[in-house]
């Protein structure tokens, strides 16, 4: 008798691989984006099956929801261009295939070299969980044991939004394309109905991260959805005068994170060695600031270029 869940896992794995192949093969851009979104949902399901709900939440919220929104917003701007890709030179294709084969060989090697059934670092994390300030092991790892890596991840997001604003400033002097057609009354009512709920859910995900799956990235992604809904329903229209505030919120996470690290390093500790009495407070403080930054950054990435005065014709404000 086969375990029915094993059958489910095999089907799920095959579906993910075939979705990935289809994304690469299909020639229609819109179909491609839809397939990427489905691929993300299936991956989130796979993470659930691997008993990693934190990763599943992040994959569903950022990898699927927000990436899907970013891709669709991009598609809106490029869809009038002909659906033809210039042919790649054969040399580039061969080099790409070689690099992919190297990555695959590395992964297979790493998998084969790892002895089966070892507990990994899970035991070490469980042993030191009491000193971390939080009860959820994933948050303990992300915000305490390897907080430096997480700081770098937040820096990556900051660099991304800086790059998008810089590139858009350079390449295009054309008037900003609108985000979409006038959506009408129903989506506005929908926004009024769900926006308070989404805001509470985002804050809840942040708070619950100390003791259960959740945290800054998941909460930030949900709050970014608030920003996207506000932009789509035109309840919030970015103005040039909002730029300083936006920049401040973008750097809030990195600045707060680094400031805490440096401050705790003052009293003869190493950076990120939080004093045991205040560990939970400090972690929540960092996570709160990072959540705000992530939400603002992702919503700004969806909006695209930095806000400019719409009334001026062609000229920059």
């Amino acid at each position: 008798m086969i375990d029915p869940l094993l059958l489910f896992d095999v089907i799920l794995g095959l579906a993910i691989v075939s979705l990935a192949v289809t994304v690469l093969v299909v020639r229609d851009r819109f179909a491609m984006i839809v397939l990427v979104i489905v691929f993300g949902l299936m991956s989130a399901l796979a993470w659930v099956r691997l008993a990693a709900p934190d990763v599943a939440l992040a994959e569903a919220a950022i990898g699927t929801g927000l990436t899907g929104a970013l891709l669709l917003a991009t598609w809106r701007q490029v869809r009038t261009e002909p659906e033809r890709w210039p042919a790649l030179p054969r040399g580039v294709m061969v080099i790409n295939m070689g690099l992919c084969a190297l990555v695959l060989a590395g992964l297979v090697g790493a998998f084969l070299a790892t002895p089966l059934g070892t507990p990994g670092l899970g035991v070490a994390v469980a042993d030191n969980l009491a000193d971390s300030g939080v009860e959820h092991p994933v948050t303990a790892v992300l915000l305490n044991f390897r907080a430096y890596d997480t700081l770098m991840e937040v820096v990556v997001l900051l660099v991304a939004v800086i790059a998008v604003w810089m590139i858009d400033r350079g390449v295009s002097q054309a008037p900003q394309p609108t985000l979409g057609p006038e959506l009408g009354d129903l989506p506005r009512g929908f926004a009024r109905l769900v926006l308070p709920a989404i805001t509470v859910i985002g804050a809840y995900l942040l708070w619950v991260g100390t003791s259960a799956p959740g945290g800054a990235f998941q909460g930030g992604a949900v709050l970014a959805a608030v920003g996207i809904l506000l932009l789509l329903t035109q309840r919030y229209q970015p103005q040039p005068s909002h730029r300083p505030l936006a920049r401040g919120v973008f750097v809030l996470g990195v600045a707060g994170f680094a400031a805490v690290a440096l401050l705790v390093a003052g009293g003869g500790r190493v950076p990120f060695e939080y004093p045991a009495d205040h560990a939970k407070t400090l972690i929540l403080l960092i996570e709160g600031l990072v959540t705000l930054s992530i939400a603002a950054t992702l919503a700004a990435l969806f909006h695209g270029r930095e806000p400019e005065a719409i009334s001026t014709q062609g000229g920059r404000s």
């Binding site: 959506l183 129903l186 989506p187 769900v194």
Partner: peptide, 13 residues
């Protein structure tokens, strides 16, 4: 409730 409302609104859109 949230999925039902968003499903109805996306269908309408």
């Amino acid at each position: 409730g949230l999925v039902a409302v968003s499903s109805a609104v996306s269908g309408h859109l």
